[in-house]
């Protein structure tokens, strides 16, 4: 379970997070939505311990990761997987080497075992036969899949997705969302997705939290968010729908 309590952060005097409160239960998939530049990525970076908050706590199974030392933090991170926005594959390594990297570095498995696990993870994300290509040779959608495979390969408890579908066309977008649902069923991880794909993300998430101007203005199941009467939420969910219909017509 991850509990975020009164999290505050400002950069150069500008408040980005103004007291975030959110609880994420084990095995659920939570989507954090909101306008771009609204602090979603900043929140994510706090959750994975890259940024330190000015105030507040983040409890992961009761341990405050904003206070622990590097060694303890690393032990918690061992149970995390992160899929970064631009997929962040290592350019100098092949697809296979990218996926095998966490196994090579973090485990003492033999070569054959690593190969088996990495290929299985690639297969689970629907990729086969591209192991020897370099990241520059595959498409954006494939890169996201590889990044997910790399996160999955060590079997983490929690996977963070930072805008996993930005810059993808609607068809690929749906296939990535489908993939998140499928792998969630198979690997049973806690999923935290930063997204602005509304309403598509509602099909993926068990719970949706909306971040607006540094606070969580609404949180609940997708249905609850859809029916939320808060004008900000209403505007955001409907304007996105308008935008979508406009772009499709």
């Amino acid at each position: 379970m991850i509990e975020i309590i009164d999290l505050e952060k400002s950069f150069n005097g500008q408040e980005v997070l103004k007291g975030i409160n959110l609880t994420i239960l084990d095995r659920e998939v939570v989507a954090i939505i909101g306008e771009s530049g609204g602090g979603k990525s900043v929140l994510l970076k706090h959750l994975i311990g890259i940024l330190k908050p000015d105030k507040g706590k983040i409890l992961v199974d009761g341990v405050d990761i904003t206070k622990v030392g590097r060694r303890e933090l690393d032990r918690i991170r061992d149970r995390f997987g992160v899929v970064f926005q631009g997929s962040a594959l290592f350019d100098s390594m092949t697809i296979f080497e990218n996926v095998a990297f966490p196994l090579n570095e973090k485990t003492k498995l033999g070569k054959n075992e690593i190969q088996g696990k990495a290929l299985r993870a690639l297969e689970d994300v629907g990729l086969k036969g591209i192991e020897n290509k370099y990241p520059s040779e595959i498409s954006g959608g494939m890169k996201r899949r590889v990044a997910l495979a790399r996160a999955l390969v060590i079997g983490p408890d929690t996977i963070f997705f930072d805008e996993p579908t930005t810059g993808l066309d609607p068809i690929i977008l749906h296939s990535i969302h489908r993939l998140i649902i499928d792998t969630h069923v198979k690997y049973n991880f806690t999923g935290i997705i930063i997204s602005h794909e509304i309403p598509e993300i509602f099909d993926v998430a068990d719970k949706v939290a909306m971040l607006y101007q540094g606070t969580i203005v609404a949180a609940g199941t997708p249905e609850e968010i859809r029916k939320n009467s808060n004008p900000v939420v209403k505007q955001f969910t409907s304007s996105c729908r308008d935008e979508l219909t406009k772009s499709l017509s």
């Binding site: 970076k45 994975i48 311990g49 890259i50 933090l73 690393d74 032990r75 991170r77 061992d78 995390f80 992160v82 970064f84 926005q85 631009g86 962040a88 594959l89 290592f90 350019d91 966490p102 570095e105 973090k106």
Partner: peptide
């Protein structure tokens, strides 16, 4: 590697 978050990948892999 820094701006494409590859360094953050290493950090989050502990």
């Amino acid at each position: 590697m820094r701006i494409s978050e590859q360094i953050d990948v290493l950090t989050t892999m502990a």
